[in-house]
Design a protein around this nucleic acid. Sequence first.
DNA 1: CGGTACATTGAAGGGGCTCAATCCACGTGG
DNA 2: CCACGTGGATTGAGCCCCTTCAATGTACCG
Lengths: 255, 255
Amino acid sequence: MAIEPEHAAEPAALAYPLTGRLAGLVPLLPEEIAALASLQAARRPVARNREIIRAGRTYDGVFVLIEGAAIRVRVLRDGRRQVLNVVLPGDFIGFPACFFEAALYSITALSDAIVSWIPFASLFALFHQHPRLGATLFCSFSCEAAMYAEHLIDVGRRSARERVAHFLLELLTRLQAIGLADERSYRMPLTQELIGDALGLSVPHVNRTLRQLREDDLVSIDGQIVVIKDIEALAALADFEKIYLSRFRIGELLA
Amino acid sequence: MAIEPEHAAEPAALAYPLTGRLAGLVPLLPEEIAALASLQAARRPVARNREIIRAGRTYDGVFVLIEGAAIRVRVLRDGRRQVLNVVLPGDFIGFPACFFEAALYSITALSDAIVSWIPFASLFALFHQHPRLGATLFCSFSCEAAMYAEHLIDVGRRSARERVAHFLLELLTRLQAIGLADERSYRMPLTQELIGDALGLSVPHVNRTLRQLREDDLVSIDGQIVVIKDIEALAALADFEKIYLSRFRIGELLA
DNA sequence: CGGTACATTGAAGGGGCTCAATCCACGTGG
DNA sequence: CCACGTGGATTGAGCCCCTTCAATGTACCG
C-alpha cells in the first residue's frame, strides 16, 4: 500500500510510528523518545506476500511494522483460513510468537513493507530502564486485546452486514489514528477473499454484502478506495463504538 | 463451582493461584514469591451471578481470580450475547478494563468466587521492582491473546462439532494446568446457553452437538461432569493443538 | 408443591455456503 | 500490438447447516 499524499500524516509520526502511537497515549520525555527511536532503528524491507513471521519457527525478538500492512493468519489443515487481525504501522509483530517455542501464526505482508527488528533483550531492557514506557506498551497491548474481543463479537454474534460494516469502520478509525486515512476514506489493504477470511464469510457473500452496503448508499468503493458515505448510519448498523480504539487513561494512571 | 477433592491440586497453588501460574513458567526467587503473595492478599468474596467488573465503570486496578470461575461478556443492544472468554483461578480480571475510561465488558462470576484486588499502582511498582515478574506476566498475557486467537478461529472457521470439541479440550487443558481437572474429566462451569454464547451457536444446536459427540462415544456428560472418553479422536476432530496453552520459553529468554 | 433454571427434542425456515461461470484490469511475452 | 495468463471482483442457482419457535422433560429449591 503506497502512502497517498492526501493520506499522509506529519513526517515524524511516519518515521517512527511506534513513538507516534505511544505519544498519543502519554506525554513522552525526551529520553523516552530517544529510547523508542533507537528501538525502531534497525530496518528491513519485506516484499509483498512474504512472511514476516513464519508459523512453527522460533523467534528471539519482535518486529515493529514501520510502513505497509500485514495480516496475522492461521491456516487449518484442510485449507480453511482465519485472518486473526490486520497489522498497521506502529503495531508490534511477534507477540505472542516470541514467547512460544514455535510461532503459532504466520504474519504476511499485504504490501511491500518495512519492519524494524527488536531483540527481546532490548525490549526487556526498555521495560527496566523506562517503566513508564513499559506500562504504556502494556496499555497499547490491551487495546489490541480489545480489538480481538470486538473481532470475536463480529464473528460470533453479528450478521454479515453488521460484520462488514464494523470491519470497515474499525479500519477507518485505526488508519485515521496513524494519519493514513482522511475524514471518510482510505485504501483497503485487503482483498475480498481476505476480508472473508477475517470475518468468517465466503468470498461471494462478502461481495454481495458490500454491494448491498453500496446500494444503501452507506459506502462507495472504487478499486481499493473505500469511502464511508454515512458514518452515523453505518455505525448504528454495526453497533460500532470507537471507544475501544481510544479513550485510554494510562496517562492519568501514571501521573 | 465447588472444588472436588479428586480435582484438587497442591494447597500452595490453590492458595496463591497466580504464584502457581507464574512458577510454572519461570523458577521464582523467594522475594518474587513474597511479592506475588502480598499482591494476592486482599481478598473479597463474590456471589454467583454477580458482576466483578461492570461494563461502563472506571477501575483503578485489577483483580486476580483466586477461586471459582467467571466469564467476560459483551451484551449487544438487542440482547445478543458473546462470551469472550472464561476466567479461571490465577487469571487476571480487569485487563484491559483499567486502561479505559469505561470498562468495555462485564465480568460475571459463574459460581461463588474469591478475588483479590490489586491497585494499578501496586502492579506498576511490581513491574518496577521485579522486572522478571513483569516479563513473566507479559508472557502470561500473550497466552491469553493466543486463546483469543484460537477462539476466533473456532467461531470464524470451524463447524459446530469442531467448535464444541475444541472448547471442551481447551477447558480440560486449562483446568488440568491449575489442578482442577484430572486426566480426562472436569466439572463444566458453563451452562449450555453460555457455551452457545461463547461459540456463536444457539442453545438447541449446542445440545444436539453435545448429543452427537456423546453418541460417537467421544465424550460423556453427566450433569456438570464432563468425561473426555477419546482425547485423541476429539483432538483430531477439533484440530486441537495444546501448544498454545503451554510450551513457553520465557525462562530461556530471561536467562 | 409450585416455581425456576436448565436440558432436550421436533418442525420449519433462512442466511450464508458451495459450485460454477463470467467479467475485468493488468502485466508479460511473442 | 495483440494473445494470453493471472488475480481479483461479480453474479447466479441450489442446498445445507444452523436458527427460530415451540413444547416437553427434569432436577432442585424455597
